[in-house]
């Protein structure tokens, strides 16, 4: 067991170093950071709206770039190892293919977590600075506002700033990226080119985001058993990625129930494990 964990950690560590050296990683993170910073120059209608716009753009940028990174970084891992024959010297050692796949996934997850931390820290710092500046501005206007009006303004600024739900939204962004990385690993286990994997994952991404809308429409207009079965199969194979986007609620200040977060994290665990097991099963059949 300890030897197995040591092997998985070795593969994950090497994968993380390999990915961290990719230029695409820095370009994507840089783009996201620029977007987060630039969001502070937008929309100065009110303090509350300013913070909401900053949050909206920051969460959107982190969400998009982390998803893109999960797909692009994972897509080339297995094909590159096979093409470079690195896989021969690794799998000729007492390394089960499951450990190899899991190590690769954990390496990607490490990269995603580091990227999320980098982007989140900047997002939180920007939000904190804007929040402090807004609170100071509101306090300066204290003479012009009635006491209850002032307290309401301060409360709305604090609600629009950093709170527990924002952290939850960031954790769910990581969870969604983990699902995308596991699904990408699964497809790349049988794909023969990166382009195929990335194209297939673009479709998975679209289906994952549109399936809840399609489900609502179809169940309303045609609720026969064939449709229901089809929808159930689609819902089982493709995770409802739209469910992970809670940014609208977070921006709107709508409290996120804790059980929803737990449910979504449970769903993440289920899909990640399922995709990794499927990827392993496919990879076991693959002739190297």
């Amino acid at each position: 067991m300890i030897a197995s964990l040591r092997r998985i950690r070795a593969i994950a560590g090497t994968t993380l170093i390999e990915l961290a050296r990719l230029r695409v990683f820095y370009v994507l993170v840089l783009f996201a950071l620029v977007l987060i910073v630039s969001s502070t120059f937008l929309a100065r209608i009110s303090f509350q709206q300013e913070l909401q716009v900053t949050k909206d753009i920051s969460l959107g940028a982190i969400n998009f770039f982390l998803s893109l990174l999960a797909i692009v970084a994972t897509a080339q891992l297995l094909p590159r190892d096979i093409e470079d024959r690195v896989v021969y010297s690794v799998l000729a050692k007492p390394v089960p293919r499951f450990e190899y796949i899991l190590g690769k996934f954990l390496g990607v997850l490490g990269l995603l977590a580091l990227s999320l931390v980098a982007m989140s820290v900047l997002c939180l710092v920007v939000l904190h600075l804007r929040e402090q500046s807004a609170l100071q501005e509101a306090n300066r206007q204290v003479t012009q506002l009635a006491p209850d009006q002032l307290s309401s303004t301060l409360r709305s600024i604090q609600m629009a700033g950093i709170n527990r739900d924002l952290i939850a939204a960031l954790v769910l962004v990581l969870a969604k990226s983990a699902i995308l990385a596991a699904a990408t690993l699964c497809i790349s286990a049988f794909a023969t080119s990166n382009i195929f994997t990335i194209t297939a994952m673009a479709m998975v991404y679209l289906i994952g985001h549109l399936e809840s809308i399609a489900r609502e429409y179809w169940l309303e207009h045609a609720a026969g058993w064939v449709t229901r079965t089809f929808l159930a199969v689609v819902a089982f194979i493709f995770p409802d990625l739209q469910a992970f986007n809670i940014s609208d609620q977070v921006i709107g200040g709508i409290p996120i129930p804790a059980h929803l977060i737990v449910q979504l994290l449970g769903l993440t665990t289920f899909y990640v494990l399922s995709y990794i097991l499927l990827a392993t099963a496919i990879f076991y059949q693959r002739e190297l």
Binding site: R6, T14, R85, P94
Partner: peptide, 22 residues
């Protein structure tokens, strides 16, 4: 034509394979 992770040093490569070998 052995290929290994080119970003690792010689010693790191051997340590990596030592871990894999248990």
């Amino acid at each position: 034509n052995a290929y290994f992770h080119k970003f690792l040093t010689g010693a790191e490569t051997l340590r990596f394979h030592a871990k894999l070998s248990g």
